[in-house]
Design a protein around this nucleic acid. Structure first.
Length: 865
RNA sequence: GGCGCUGUGGCGGAAUGGUAGACGCUACGCACUUAAAAUGCGUUGGGGGUAACCCCGUGUGGGUUCAAGUCCCACCAGCGCCACCA
């Protein structure tokens, strides 16, 4: 009587057994001191925000990392594979506002829910190292790290613009402002308001963060490119202009060679020198322009497009290279927070400056003359940013002009430096990181404001600064922390005077910028971590997560790592050795192409030929990001209930390469379930006929045995290859299918080779489908876990073949194949090929000019005519 | 505007410069069944031929090579990131 594959039964059973046995507990470096030192492997998935339910994207992310962790365990590494919760953030506050549930309660309930869902996936986490960023045990050390930045002078306050909701009188996060610039809650047009904010000085690390991207060969190129773009280094020179009144205005330019063509200057409306430069006559106009610019939010500023606006200050500056007197304007196309907030305008060679000059009738001076043309400032219709020869440029006249580090730029920098008028330098687009949030559910910034001592850090012994849990959240007014007198009022740690706590909390990106450093020593109550343990486990060997974190999270984590290295806390400078950015999981939608509306799948009568039940129009089937409004979400719970976790895991790995988007298709899931059923029948049928699976293969094998053994060892070789380095889980799974097919077709079911095949299949399958592999492994009669078995190693002997297939080509076209002895040399191959019917057929009457022989592959005849 | 990535059957996708389409899904046919489901077997890029075989085919156009899905150049389409960045 054959048993049935019932994933629900065996999955629950084995999850319990593994938990009881502590199968997934991490092995520390000193755990097996008597044995040979084992290599460490740190496998990490980006930890989730506990929103309440698991979605398919999570399943994909964690399954990938789990397979990697399991393979490394079987290969003998000691593996760290932890999980935790990125638990601070807005949704908890929203839940509190909407439903009156305390953020902490809501968050911990969600964590419990998601943890139990995660456990049903059979992920091999060491749950004893779980971290939760909203727990005082964790954020105490977040605060401690903040103080390290503070001590190092890298945490500072300055005025910065925030999104201000004038109706609710509250600060909004960028995500709370819709595309039209309105508050998500009140619907009011969001204003910009200057408030004192905390920053981390990430710009100090701009150059290192850029340079060290080269140290990351295991990262996807595009992620590195995105980071490089974000850091945005440009090289050029800094030049100081002096006004008639003697004030200095410094500008940054990437084209110092065009200095001789600067005909005016433009300052950002917020530039501190503007009031001083403004003449009495211009005061009104300037003030009006500044006010208009300040009121504009980012949306308006970009929506305005190309139209150039600006006002003359009434003052002039002297161009340091030629002594010319040029007017100083203000305009909002010059940004205060890039470069110096001021530019020299070279309208002949910069399109923006050109447009500005034409709008306001300012002079245009050509200093780069392209070959074969004579540009004239009067008649120019667009700026010439290209190459040419320097003209009207005094000392650098006649030098070829190019972009970037071209000759003219180098010459100009050399001249500037020699005459003390400027110097070559680099500028970065990267800004300092604004980390303060005027919100409740976050890590409190551990600072006290004393009327006498000023800003005083909370002493280490007083950490953590606990986030009070008894608060009312309304979504209106300031953060509840600013109302909570019992919490707010403290005595100054330095002088004892009455003082007040800082009420801002930290950006949640801070919490996630160091969590990977906590896992190696997650329960340390005395230290942020034991450096020995962190230095042992770090860096993360394989990090897996969504591409949406390509810039911020990964950049911030790199910044933290470099900073902590500089503080002497750790001995490495990059946190993530290898990075895999997995693609999205998309759901199937039925979309009416005319109306753009989505139809509920249950209303589609014939899925093969979908029509709109209302209009009868044909629907198109498109895969898009899962969402309620598209009726295309698939809940992991439902899939596990129906097919089991093993099917879900296998399907997700097989359906697409990990970095590509994956189309969730029920029919394919069925197919995957069928495969596991085939394996089940294959192995259970085997255990009924074959008693001893442990026999060693005999010395001489029959042909079918040899063929099967080759299939087995090819599967080992290919699967191992697909799991090494560039993870190709989809082809690895297909290798498992091939091996299963080979065993199904094999005739030598009584041979020890067949038993070897069955065992190998289970071992190779264990990381992918851990439950069914374990169950069948035990059905073979073993009592130890399949997950504790060694990863199989391909036997080169088994891969040896007697005969190989050689391709016959004529003029590069394949004309047939021949079987030849495996050891045949070049000459023999050519001889066999000449005699082959395919060659005979196509060579008849032709003159052979050349024969290309690629041993093991092909013979190609090159003929005349 | 700048910088990148991707284009392969009905579909998802395989192919160290060397037999394009592995593996799977779908569809069709057959077997088993009273029937269905499940399962098993077969076919499944296009065209021609009874067959052996032949011709065409990896977004488009060129090139390199004995040989190109793969390398180079140009273009087209889709996607991503950055963007009044001096």
């Amino acid at each position: 009587m054959e048993s049935r594959y019932e994933p629900q039964v065996i999955e629950e059973k084995w999850q319990q057994v593994w938990a009881d046995q502590g199968l997934d507990r991490t092995l520390e470096a000193d755990a097996d001191a008597t044995q040979e030192a084992r290599p460490k492997f740190y496998a990490l998935s980006m930890f989730p925000y506990p929103s309440g339910t698991l979605h398919m994207g999570h399943v994909r992310n964690y399954t990938i990392t789990d397979v990697v962790a399991r393979v490394h365990r079987m290969q003998g590494d000691r593996v760290l594979h932890p999980m935790g919760w990125d638990a601070f953030g807005l949704p908890a506050e929203n839940a509190a506002i909407d439903r009156g549930v305390a953020p902490a309660k809501w968050t911990y309930q969600n964590i419990a829910q998601m943890r139990s869902e995660l456990k049903r996936l059979g992920l091999s986490y060491d749950w004893e190292r779980e971290v939760t960023t909203c727990s005082p045990d964790y954020y105490r050390w977040t605060q401690w790290l903040f103080l390290e930045f503070f001590k190092a002078g890298l945490a500072y306050q300055k005025e910065a613009a925030v999104n201000w909701d004038p109706i609710d009188q509250t600060v909004l996060a960028n995500e709370q402002v819709d595309s039209e610039g309105r508050s998500w809650r009140s619907g009011a047009i969001v204003e910009r308001k200057l408030l004192r904010q905390w920053f981390l000085k990430i710009t100090d690390y701009a150059e290192q963060l850029l340079q060290d991207l080269d140290k990351l060969p295991g990262w996807p190129e595009r992620v590195k490119l995105m980071q490089a773009n974000w850091i945005g280094k440009s090289t050029g020179a800094q030049v100081t202009f002096t006004t008639e009144a003697g004030d200095e205005i410094t500008v940054f330019t990437t084209r110092p060679d065009t200095l001789w063509g600067a005909t005016f200057m433009v300052l950002s409306p917020e530039h501190p020198l503007v009031p001083k430069l403004t003449t009495a006559k211009q005061k009104k106009a300037i003030a009006a322009y500044q006010q208009a610019a300040a009121a504009k939010n980012e949306i308006d500023r970009t929506a305005e497009g190309r139209e150039k606006t600006g006002v003359w200050t009434g003052s002039y500056a002297i161009n340091p290279v030629n002594g010319e007197k040029i007017p100083i304007w203000i305009a909002d196309y010059v940004l205060m927070d890039y470069g110096t907030g001021a530019i020299m305008a070279v309208p002949a060679h910069d399109q923006r400056d050109f447009e500005f000059a034409r709008t306001f009738g300012l002079p245009v001076q050509v200093v780069v003359q392209p070959e074969g043309q004579t540009l004239d400032g009067e008649t120019l219709t667009a700026a010439w940013p290209g190459e040419g020869v320097m003209v009207n440029s005094g000392p650098i006249d006649g030098i070829p002009a190019g972009k970037g580090e071209g000759q003219s730029v180098m010459a100009a920098i050399a001249w500037l430096e020699q005459h003390g008028k400027g110097q070559g330098m680099a500028n970065y687009r990267l800004r300092d990181w604004l980390i303060s949030r005027q919100r409740y559910w976050g890590c409190p910034i551990p600072v006290i404001h004393c009327p006498d001592c000023g800003m005083v850090p909370v002493p280490e012994a007083d950490l953590p600064v606990r986030l009070p849990e008894e608060v009312d959240l309304t979504g209106r007014g300031a953060s509840p922390l600013t109302q909570l007198e019992s919490w707010l009022n403290v005595s100054c740690p330095s002088c004892g005077a009455a003082a007040r706590r800082e009420t801002d909390t930290m950006d949640t990106f801070i919490d996630s910028s160091w969590y990977f450093l906590r896992y190696p020593d997650a329960n340390n109550a005395d230290q942020v971590f034991d450096p020995t343990k962190v230095n042992d486990w770090m860096p993360v060997d394989q990090y897996v997560g969504g591409i949406e974190h390509a810039i911020l999270h990964l950049l911030y984590s790199r910044f933290f790592t470099k900073f902590l290295r500089d503080r002497g806390l750790i001995n490495f400078d990059e946190p993530f050795q290898r990075l895999l950015t997995q693609g999205m999981v998309q759901g199937k939608t039925y979309k009416n192409p005319r109306t753009g509306k989505y139809v509920v799948p249950s209303q589609v009568a014939d899925p093969a030929n979908p029509v709109d039940p209302e209009s009868g129009e044909a629907l198109e089937v498109v895969y898009e990001k899962m969402s309620k409004s598209k009726y295309n979400g698939v809940a992991p719970e439902a899939v596990i209930n129906k097919y089991g976790a093993d099917t879900a895991r296998m399907f997700i790995l097989f359906k697409a390469p990990p970095e590509k988007d994956l189309e969730w298709d029920e029919a394919d899931v069925e197919g995957q379930f069928r495969f596991l059923n085939r394996v089940w029948r294959l192995v259970t049928a085997f255990t009924q006929t074959q008693k001893d699976a442990t026999q060693t293969p005999p010395d001489s094998l029959t042909k079918p045995e040899k063929d099967l053994r080759r299939a087995i060892h090819t599967a080992i070789q290919e699967t191992t290859h697909d799991l090494a380095g560039d993870y190709q889980f989809n082809t690895a799974v297909s290798e498992l299918m091939k091996l299963s097919n080979a065993l199904n077709e094999a005739t030598c079911v009584d041979s020890p080779v067949y038993a070897e095949g069955i065992e190998t299949l289970l071992r190779l399958m264990a990381p992918f489908a851990p439950h069914i592999s374990e169950e069948l492994w035990h059905q073979l009669g073993y009592t130890d876990s399949v997950h504790r078995q060694a990863w199989p190693v391909a036997d080169p002997q088994a891969l040896v073949v007697d005969e190989i297939t050689i391709v016959i080509q004529v003029m590069g076209k394949t004309r047939g194949t021949i079987q030849v002895p495996a050891g045949a040399d070049k000459q023999a191959l050519e001889d066999y090929a000449r005699e082959s019917p395919a060659a005979q057929r196509h060579l008849e009457g032709k003159e052979i000019k050349k024969v290309i022989v690629v041993p093991g592959k092909l013979v190609n005849f090159v003929v005349a005519g």
